[in-house]
């Protein structure tokens, strides 16, 4: 009785007085969090505010608000340009290829690690698999360049040998770009990505394992019926994150791997936005911003959609 009346009282308190009361009690927490909040406001939300130049004809003299409003002009120009579909196709091809590998492979590797009982063996393979994660993009691309150099590089030579001289100089081939981009990423991240699955696998209880053993499950059956269900929520979350960033092909690595000869396959929306906005000529800020906005907007929609679907189907979601 007392409880419910208290609850009522709490609910009738307006939001404002709730925060006023909390501020009197916890003002020091507000002071602490002030700097991070202001920081995020400036460095994350100000650019979002600045995104309106995508709908304006921005020039530096008039500033963001003073520049002429042009509606969807830049978006139309982008959609009607002959490049739109090519860049869209390149982006999706790289991204889907990447998801198709970078989602299942860490799961597979983690399940393998989990089967291994020899600690020293397991730790050494894990250690080796983590190392590439700490290589910077610049150095990774440098490694791809030296290793796939057809004259001297180990992998370039190997490819040439295996294909009996058919495959030479993959670095300057447009058709090889996707493979190089995705597989170098896999090489770099596959080990590190196993960690969250390993964490989920530690939650497999002894009882479950023993129950499976009593039922006469083989080690393989235990992987299928005990281990995989244990990591299922993590698998769904990871897939959500990957699909939710389907158009986010990072411009840094693509720009680093790009050359005149592979441009047909390597130009993606994010690099095109960057180049249009900042590099080509003196840079068309508004057009570049519009392309970038299109990219992140589609991404957000996809993320919201898959998150909702996943909430319904798997009862797992990001938030």
């Amino acid at each position: 009785m007392q409880l419910s009346s208290k609850k009522m009282e709490y609910q009738t308190l307006s939001l404002r007085s709730k925060y006023a009361k909390d501020f009197r009690k916890n003002w020091q927490l507000y002071v602490m969090v002030l700097l991070p909040v202001v920081y995020i406001l400036i460095f994350a939300y100000m650019p979002m505010y600045g995104l309106q130049i995508a709908f304006r004809n921005y020039n530096a003299l008039d500033g963001i608000m003073g520049s002429k409003f042009v509606g969807l002009m830049w978006f139309k120009r982008f959609f009607n340009s002959p490049w739109f579909w090519r860049y869209m196709r390149n982006t999706l091809a790289i991204s889907v290829y990447n998801i198709a590998l970078s989602w299942p492979l860490p799961i597979f590797l983690a399940l393998c690690f989990n089967v291994v009982t020899n600690k020293i063996f397991k730790n050494s393979v894990q250690f080796i698999s983590y190392l590439p994660n700490f290589i910077s993009t610049v150095v990774l691309v440098g490694m791809v360049n030296v290793l796939f150099g057809s004259r001297t590089g180990l992998l370039g030579r190997t490819l040439e040998y295996i294909s009996q001289g058919q495959v030479t100089n993959v670095l300057s081939s447009a058709s090889a770009f996707r493979h190089l981009y995705v597989w170098s990423g896999i090489w770099q991240n596959v080990g590190w990505s196993t960690i969250i699955y390993m964490a989920a696998l530690t939650s497999v209880s002894k009882d479950q394992t023993e129950a499976a053993l009593i039922d006469g499950a083989s080690r393989f059956q235990r992987v299928i019926h005990v281990d995989i269900p244990a990591i299922m929520p993590t698998m769904v979350i990871q897939l959500l994150l990957l699909v939710g960033s389907v158009l986010n092909v990072g411009e840094e690595k693509v720009l680093l791997m790009q050359n005149d000869l592979n441009l047909a396959a390597s130009e993606v929306i994010s690099t095109y936005s960057f180049k249009t906005g900042l590099l080509i000529g003196s840079g068309n800020y508004s057009f570049g911003a519009a392309i970038g906005f299109f990219n992140s907007f589609i991404n957000l929609i996809v993320l919201l959609t898959v998150n909702k679907v996943s909430k319904k189907v798997f009862e797992t979601s990001l938030w």
Binding site: I42, F43, A44, Y45, M46, P47, M48, Y49, G50, L51, I53, I64, E251, S270, S273, F274, G277, L278, Y285, G288, A289, G292, F293, N295, S296
Partner: peptide, 9 residues
């Protein structure tokens, strides 16, 4: 916001 508005900021 993406790279262009960030650059302007």
């Amino acid at each position: 916001g993406g790279i262009i508005p960030t650059y302007l900021l």
